Amino acid sequence: MFFYIFLIVVASQRLIEVLIAKRNEKWMKSKGAKEYGKRHYRLMVAIHFLFFVSLIMESILGRSDLNSDWPLLVAVFFIVQLCRVWVIMALGRFWNTKIIVLKDAEVVAKGPYKFIKHPNYLIVTIELIIIPLIFNAYWTLFIFAILNQLILAIRIPLEEEVLNKQTNYEDELTSKRRFIPLIRKSR
């Protein structure tokens, strides 16, 4: 029963995020923003959808019980969700699931962005580890942890390239110290 309640909560959260993203996308595009990475975005959506299909199949067919450490894992999951809200609030109208960039916009460097470059991707990565662990879905954990890193290896460089060209991203990054070190390119 917990499995289904948990899935409903996560699915509801994702639906709310899609609605926020659509609203923000409409606003940004009305201001002249452009979207990048449409091809890989479809793949990313497919990976996230298949993650839940895999989780359901592995949990139902494998009849896995909850992990013995499930209370701790659920607590970590909820802390990560608070961090997700922090990210969305920090970016405000600029938060989106797509790469949509408004030329010459000031890069957001508040909230979690004061500390790391891509907190939203870190949050998703942690979720793709924690959720399968809660339900002992180790195949889902293994497969989608790898797929997530592969899609991020495409997405993050593209996002940073576009931000560097269209905004003050590089200036913002080099002017602030962060917890996660920045490897600077020599010019």
Rank of each mutant, 00 (worst) to 15 (best):
I156N: 07
I154K: 07
W27V: 13
P132A: 11
M28E: 01
A46S: 14
N67E: 05
V162C: 06
T167A: 08
N67D: 09
V107W: 07
A21Q: 04
P132E: 09
V18H: 03
I126W: 08
K165V: 00
E25L: 10
N148I: 08
V101E: 04
E159T: 03
M1H: 13
R39L: 14
P181V: 00
Q13H: 09
L158G: 13
V18P: 05
E17A: 04
V101L: 01
A46D: 06
F52L: 06
Y121P: 09
E159P: 01
M1E: 12
S59R: 00
I79K: 08
K176S: 05
V45Q: 03
K98S: 08
R23E: 08
S59T: 12
R23K: 14
N67L: 07
V107E: 09
I56H: 06
L61E: 12
D69M: 15
P119A: 05
L182M: 13
S175K: 11
V10T: 09
F2N: 11
V18N: 04
M1D: 13
G62V: 05
M1T: 12
A11S: 13
D69P: 12
W139G: 10
F78P: 11
N168P: 11
N24I: 06
T140H: 03
L133Y: 08
E159S: 07
P112Y: 07
P181N: 06
N148A: 13
I16M: 10
V74F: 03
M89I: 15
A11W: 12
I47S: 08
S186L: 13
P112H: 11
E127H: 02
S64Q: 14
K110T: 15
V18D: 00
A105E: 01
L141E: 09
W139D: 06
P119H: 02
W139I: 15
A145P: 00
G37A: 01
I16K: 10
L55G: 00
V85M: 09
S54R: 07
F6K: 00
G92E: 03
I151S: 04
I126K: 10
I143Q: 04
I88N: 08
K110A: 13
N96G: 09
R187A: 13
E25N: 09
F3H: 05
D65V: 15
N164S: 15
Y138R: 11
L152M: 11
F78Y: 12
H40T: 01
A145G: 14
L82S: 13
F179W: 15
L128F: 14
V74S: 00
V9M: 00
M1A: 12
E25I: 08
K110S: 14
L122D: 09
N96E: 05
K176Q: 09
W70P: 06
T97L: 12
P132W: 04
K185N: 04
S186C: 12
R178V: 05
V124W: 06
R84K: 04
I116E: 05
L182W: 13
I99V: 02
L163Q: 04
